[in-house]
C-alpha cells in the first residue's frame, strides 16, 4: 500500500548538527529525505536502478560537502539541486531518452486522480518522459516537491522568468497530451 509522502519541513537544526560532524543527525536526514529523493529521481530518470544510483551518489556528495551548506539555508533545495545534477549526469551517461521509460516501481493505481486506472498513470509517465530535462526538472521540483520558484531559481541558477516558462511549457504539454488521452478514452 502506498501513500503520499510527507513533505513537512526538516528540523533546521538537523543539517547543522550533521555539518558539525554528528553522524546520527546525518543518518536521520537520509532516512527522512530518502523517500522524496527516490521519488524525484524515479520521475527524472525513469528506472529504479538509475534512480537509486543517483540518490546514493547524492547523499555521499551531501555528506562530504556539508561544509558548503549555508547555516541559514534550507536543506531540501540544496539536496534537490545536487540530486537534479546527479540525475542529469545519469541521463547523459546512459542515454536512454529514446526508449519508452518504464517506471517499474511507479504504478500506484489508487492515487486520487480524476481518471483512475493504470492507463492514466502510464500516460502521465510517457508524457513526462517526452519533456526536455529542464522542463521535467522544473515541473517536478515545483509541482511535486513543492519548492518555491525562488528556491529553485536560487539553487539551479536559472532565472526566475525562465523557470516559470519551463514549468508553464511543461504544464501545457501535459494538459494537451493528457486531454487527448481523455478524449480517446471517452
Amino acid at each position: 500500500m502506498s501513500s503520499s509522502l510527507p513533505s513537512a519541513p526538516i528540523d533546521p537544526s538537523l543539517p547543522l548538527r550533521a555539518k558539525a560532524g554528528d553522524r546520527q543527525a546525518f543518518a536521520q536526514l537520509v532516512e527522512l529525505c530518502y523517500p522524496r529523493a527516490l521519488r524525484f529521481a524515479l520521475h527524472m530518470v525513469g528506472n529504479r536502478e538509475d534512480a537509486e544510483e543517483a540518490v546514493q551518489d547524492t547523499f555521499v556528495r551531501v555528506y562530504h560537502h556539508l561544509g558548503r551548506f549555508r547555516d541559514d539555508g534550507r536543506f531540501e533545495p540544496w539536496l534537490f539541486r545536487i540530486l537534479a545534477n546527479r540525475c542529469r549526469t545519469v541521463l547523459a551517461k546512459r542515454r536512454r531518452h529514446a526508449e519508452v521509460i518504464q517506471y517499474g516501481d511507479v504504478p500506484d493505481h489508487d492515487a486520487p486522480t480524476p481518471v483512475d486506472g493504470p492507463d492514466w498513470m502510464e500516460e502521465i509517465h510517457k508524457v513526462l518522459a517526452t519533456l526536455p530535462v529542464g522542463q521535467r526538472e522544473a515541473f517536478l521540483l515545483h509541482h511535486v516537491e513543492e519548492l518555491a520558484y525562488e528556491e529553485i531559481a536560487a539553487v539551479t541558477g536559472v532565472r526566475l522568468s525562465a523557470l516559470r516558462m519551463r514549468v508553464k511549457r511543461a504544464c501545457d504539454v501535459l494538459r494537451v497530451r493528457l486531454a487527448e488521452v481523455r478524449r480517446d478514452e471517452g
Partner: peptide, 14 residues
C-alpha cells in the same frame, strides 16, 4: 489536469 498529475506523481513510489 495538473492537480491530477501532481496527485499521481506525489503518490509514494519509494
Amino acid at each position: 489536469v495538473i492537480e491530477a498529475v501532481r496527485g499521481a506523481l506525489r503518490t509514494s513510489v519509494a
